[in-house]
Amino acid sequence: MKQSVSLTVNDRPVEATVESRLSLADFLRLELRLTATHLGCEHGVCGACTVLINGEPARSCIALTVSLGGDEITTLEGLADDPAMQVIKQAFHDKHGLQCGFCTPGMLISTRDLLKRTPRPSEGAVRDGLSGNLCRCTGYQGIVRAVLKAAEDLAAS
């Protein structure tokens, strides 16, 4: 049961004919080979697959590709030149905000959104704001410190 769909991925128009059951995550990963988006649970809880749909974070594992006609999708790859994302990545490196790296792309995308909505968050706001992105390695301490540093660096820049 295939269906055609046109959408924009990382600023590039994409036309595809896909099975109606194909998730956005699988579409990005398998059809477009954009593998920064990771699948950690496939039922919308862990946050590893978080991407931007029309600029807003969303779980790509529970978004259906066919339902996204006309939408703009942005993955971590599409944010390579985004100035805020560069600052955030640097902060994650500086503050040891990642270990195995599997949750990292989703974590980075959620961080960018959090800092966009709350430019100078408290530690508590960071913890609540990232509660939808699970990390099994870091105990979150490095992540929280990275987000606070990124907030500072972004405010300074």
């Binding site: 993955t75 971590l76 790859e77 990545k89 195995c100 790296g101 990292t104």
Partner: peptide, 8 residues
């Protein structure tokens, strides 16, 4: 890893 270039 921060650039999404890890290969799992």
């Amino acid at each position: 890893l921060v650039n999404g270039q890890g290969t799992y």
